[in-house]
Amino acid sequence: MKKGLAYFELKQEIEEFLYQEADLLDTRKFREWLDLLAEDLVYFMPIRRNVKFGEHDERENTRQGEGISWFDEDKWTVTKRVEQILTGVHYAEEPLSRVTHMVSNVRLLDVKPSMEDPDEVTVGCRFLVFQSRVEYEHYTFIGRRTDVLRRNGDSWLIARRELILEQNVLLAKNLSILF
């Protein structure tokens, strides 16, 4: 991919979008956040496994569309997660956790059809999500993320989010927050 001015302009725009998106979650504007998700969303977080050298490509991560992952779901399910939090009696998130989403190492991995007139952008980044819960509970989720964003007027829709969490046995009791 040619990294000219158009690349950096688009990257700037995409970064801005990702930061705003994170802000909606951290300021608990969950309904507005849902509006940024495409109807055909794929929301995927595999389980990571300890495998022999040389088997990583084949076996390290569970696969989308088969078996059991942490998340392998659609917009309907993510919407249910939001609805559940908004009932006020989802005790795993009542009282609400304090959450900060950090996004860094942003790179555009693929742009279609062209850098000048992009409709679909694949963007890679790192995430660091910090959750503080009730008094003493806290969890840190760190990993790599790949999003596919689709042009939506002067903004973007998230069509695909893949979260590669750097954990094997999950070191948190719950994944009750949104990533």
Binding site: M45, G65, E66, G67, I68, S69, W70, F71, D72, E73, T77, K80, R81, Q84, H90, Y91, A92, E93, V134, E137, L170, A172, K173, N174, L175, S176
Partner: peptide, 28 residues
């Protein structure tokens, strides 16, 4: 299998919308 596994994932375990509330109760 596909419909089953997708239901299992949204119901059970740390990402399961049902069992998250169990875990909160057991912890506290």
């Amino acid at each position: 299998k596909d419909v089953s596994r997708r239901f299992y994932m949204r119901y059970s375990g740390p990402a399961g919308m049902t069992e998250q509330d169990d875990m909160e109760n057991w912890l506290y």
